[in-house]
Each structure stands twice: as C-alpha cells, then as structure tokens.
Nucleic acid binder design. Sequence first.
DNA 1: CTGTTAGCGCATTCAC
DNA 2: GTGAATGCGCTAACAG
Lengths: 342, 342
Amino acid sequence: MKKRAPTIKEIAKMLNLSVSTVSRALHDNTHISPATIKRVKEVAEELEYEPNQMAMFLQSGKTFTLGVIIPHLSEAFFSEAISGIEDYASEHNYNVLMGQSHDSVDREKKIVGAMKNHRVDGILVSIAKNSKDFNHFEILQKYEIPVVFFDRVPERAEFNTVTCKMETGMFEAVDFLAKKGHTRIAFMNGPRDLLATRERQMGYESSLKALHLINNAEYVVHSDLSSESTHRAMQQLITLNPKPTAVIAFNDYVALDAMQYARKMNIQINQDISFVSFANLPINNYMENPPLASVEQFPYRQGQRATELLLQILSIPKNKREQEVIRKIILEPRLVIHTRSN
Amino acid sequence: MKKRAPTIKEIAKMLNLSVSTVSRALHDNTHISPATIKRVKEVAEELEYEPNQMAMFLQSGKTFTLGVIIPHLSEAFFSEAISGIEDYASEHNYNVLMGQSHDSVDREKKIVGAMKNHRVDGILVSIAKNSKDFNHFEILQKYEIPVVFFDRVPERAEFNTVTCKMETGMFEAVDFLAKKGHTRIAFMNGPRDLLATRERQMGYESSLKALHLINNAEYVVHSDLSSESTHRAMQQLITLNPKPTAVIAFNDYVALDAMQYARKMNIQINQDISFVSFANLPINNYMENPPLASVEQFPYRQGQRATELLLQILSIPKNKREQEVIRKIILEPRLVIHTRSN
DNA sequence: CTGTTAGCGCATTCAC
DNA sequence: GTGAATGCGCTAACAG
C-alpha cells in the first residue's frame, strides 16, 4: 500500500476545486465559504495531508529550521544546552539541525556552509576552542542569516551573545574559599584563546585584589582541556612551595581530571587541597567527593535564552533588522555548594 | 552590503547563457564545451554560489537530511549515540535534524509528524520508555521513509534495529560476580514495558541457571529510572534477609542512584554490596568508587551502525526496497572492569 | 466566493 | 554544444 505524500493538487482534484481555493481553505478562511472550508478540511484530514515544508520554503524563504553548532555533543554542558534549544525551538514549531565542530575550525566552517546551503533561518553557535577568525560567521550576516552565540562566544562587538557573567561567578568562588580560610588559592585556567579564559582570569585577579589576597602568578596554570594537559598543570601546582591549599578549575572536567591526578599523588581531596569548579554538571551529584562547590552556568537556560533571542530577531522583518541593536544577554551564575551525599 | 544567495539564473545572465547550460556545466560536464564549463565554474566560485537544497529537493525528492528521535539529549548514552550519528551522517553529506521525546509518546508522535513534514530522507529512533503502539512509525513505511531503531527498539519483526545483545552482557556480569564468590546476586531492572528490561530479565535468569545459582524472585526489583523509584527499589533489596551481596543495575544512572542511597544507609559500596551496571558512561572513569564493572554498550558505535544501515537502505531505489530483508544488527557488548583510579 | 496564472531554484526533456 | 520549456508543491497577485 504505497502512499505518496498527498498534495493540495490531489485534494483539489477530488473536490473539483482549484489548488488556490484549497490552499486558502487550509489557511486564510477569509473569502472562502464555510461549506467549502469544511469539505476541504475533511478531505485533508482523511488523506492525512501535511504541507510540504520544502515547497513552502521555496516560495516563502523560511525553513522553520534553526542550525546549532557546538564543539562536542558528548560534553554534558553542551548536550544540556542543546536540550534547552530543542525544547524551546520545538515549542515554537522550529526544527533543529545540528552539527559538531569537534573543536576544529575547518569543520566549523564546513558546517556553516552546509547550514547556509540548507537555508536554515538562523544559527546558534558555541565556537570551537581555537576559533580566532570569524569570517565564516560574518558571511552569514550578508546572507541575512542571523547568528546568536552562546557560552563560547567571540570577543566582538558586532555579535549577539548569551553568556554567564564569569566575573561574578569567580568572585563568589574566591570569596567562598577565602571565608573557609584559604589564602593560597590557585587557578587552573583553560585555553588562552577562549574569551572565557580571559574573563575568568580577570575575575580571578580582581577578586584576589578585592579580598586582599596575594596574587602570585605561579598559582595560575593552564590546561588545554585534555586530560594529559590538566594532569601536567596539576603537577605544576603541587610542586610549588608552598603548595596552594585550594584550586579553582576552569570547568568540571578539568576539576575531575585534576582531582584524579591529585588522588594519584596521594593528596586528600578537599582536605589537603580543596577544589571548586565551573559548570556544575549533574555528575557532581553522584560523586562521593565532588568539588566543594561549583559555579552553576545554567546550560539549559543559556540554550533557551539564546533561542528566544534568535526567534525574536527572526520575527523582525529583514529590512528592519540592521537598525536593530546587537544584544548581549548576560546571565548571573550561581555558586552551588555541594554537601556530601553520603 | 546585503547579499541574497546567488542562483544559477544570475550566473546565466552574467554569462549570457541559459540556466540549463549553467546547470549542466555545474554537474554533467558532458555535451558542454570545456571552455563554457570553465567560465561557469569561475563565476560560480566568485559569486560563492551554493545550490539551494530546498529547490533541489522539490525536484529530486531528496533532502539529504536524517531525523533522529531520542528520549533525552541530557542522558550521556543518547548524546554519545547522536554524536556517532552526526559524525557518520556528516561524513556522508547528510544533515541531522533532531528531536527529544522526553519519554512521552505524544511528543514522539508530534516529532515524527514534523519530520515527515520536513521530508527527511530517513529516521533513526530510540523509542520513549512507554511506547507501546507504533502506529506513527508504521505510517512512515507507507510514505517510504525508512526507519532504523537503535538501543531502545520495539519488539517487532518488521523493523530494522541496531542493538546490543543483552543476554551476553548479562551473562558476563553474573559470571564476573559469581567468580568473585557472590551467590546472592540481586538485579535492579528497568521499566517493564521496555524490551531491554525483558531481555535483561531473561539473560539474568538463564545466567543464574547456567551457573547453578539460586534464582530468588525477591532479588529482582524494578525502577522506572527516576531517582525516587531507584531509591525505593534499593530499599526493598536491603530489607531482605539475607541481603544480596551484589546488585546488577539496569544502567549506570540506576546504579549511581542505588549506590547513593546505599551509602546513605551506611552500606559500604563494593564491600557490603558490590555493584555492576550497564552502559558504562564516561562518568565511571572519574568516580572514586565506581561500580566494579559495567557492561559497555557502545552508544557511539550503535549510532554509527544505525546510520550506516539507514544510508544503505536509502541507497536502494525506492521500488526495490520492499524486496529488501529487514535487518537486525546485534552488537556484542563487553564487560569493562573498573580499577579504582586512585 | 472561487479560478487562473506566475514564480520560488533547479534538473531534465526535447528541440535545434 | 546550447536554449526553451516543463514541473516539483505551494502561495499570492490578479481576474472574474
């Protein structure tokens, strides 16, 4: 029982009507007799008619599809974010096309090309960790495909962004540790190219200053986010004399790797050295010994807000868009203190 | 500097050629003079021409887009699987449209509708945990949209599936514990509607029999996968007399929740009661005290294989497809034994 | 209130 | 070797 998707043409033929009448009966309702509308809708129902989005696109220019580009789907932070994006998008009848850059700028460019090609209405991006040139995104502006960056965003005035205010989060983290009596608070930061890295750095320095703590450059190390790199960075810290008594980690994965390495070196987690991290992945709830605290960055909400902003931009007529202001949405993070679950 | 996506029409105009010549120059190359081809390609390059997929669809019927439906993106197992799907798909120049059912059959149906509507070429699904009727998927067959199920699959002969052979995994798990001297091995199973639940159940029973262990019905409890439900199930087990000395959990999340609850009840994990689980999420690598072992189900590879199968089906001409055999791909799971990382 | 027509971007058939 | 014409499914002028 093969069944091609029915078209308005077939409905029209069955009812001896013209396609336009059927089309209008399905939408307008104005200028069409209630009787005809009823007949048309009945037949449509019966045939399980569904409009062909591609055909509609061809003529409207709208695909009702949003593109999402993230580094890795397997990172909990990003999958939470996409989850928020998809939920919000589907509530508003948008589809979500997704691609992983795997932190490669080349793949990022390729994905942007594929999405342009696919004529998505707009794109949401968290950039690859070493993206320094944003040509591929600027081109999109020319094609009138709006872009909203979230979490990992370029440091440029002309882009719409949704981020968490890292300075606040960092201050809370440092303050939390200071109140616990720590004075030698180390910071394991991320890849130097990332805006987030520089923001955390600034937050770290200004927090130390505000709390009258000593700022020793040796207490700042960098990880490129790989386990090996994190291990090396941790090694650097524990060979210092005096050792730091607390470490703030760029994110949970870095914290996890650092803690794993520290344990191997016979350091008692959160006793010899206390840990605090960023992101607050659900994994923390299941650890016997999670970081003492984590700066919650609300990936799900970031995804939602970014999508909301994008849809808002899309609702503006194209010719009015360039008069629009660039939006920079900044969410407040929150320090979540973990009480041991057992 | 507004820039609409260029069309072959514009290229044609610029070169004083007809659209058809341009179209052929871009593909065929046969019956077109090399000189013209060169000129056309140069202009196309210069204009950054990209064919409009939607227009191509309208005329070819192919969108080069695959739909993926999963319960939750925030579950590591599924995000790993999608990661495999997206990687494989993008290697073969397919786009991925994705939707979360949130384990609701209604949303699942809605998503299927949206994807049919979007004219995806094929669909990959891991069904909602309480999907019992598969009408919405059967309809797709009629529209000649092939479907491949993975991991959570319906128990029906007529569907293509990719799964892990749970009986094998279960036997290895039971055998592993038996060799460690355990005789009272409990099993915390999942939602009764899931095929995976029944398969694990059968595997559990047959393994006990094969290893000459006692099969006490009280040692089998069920969780609906929520934390509360898992806690209740764990409570059931520890009130038994004699208590089981080992628990096999439906998956890692269930194991995590069960272990968390057990700790709260002052039970020493992997001493008083040993745990073994299914899935083997990366989280296990970071736990100080993970389950002793976990049956690795290779979500990434399942995603890849499912996509490979789907693309293979798509490569068969539509009118030949119904002569095709239904494919049931079964992967062998592997018991991964965790050595404490510290 | 309803029908006719054109056109969205492209591939394809048929002419020449 | 190239051009003209057609159609994919649909909406929107334009007629009546």
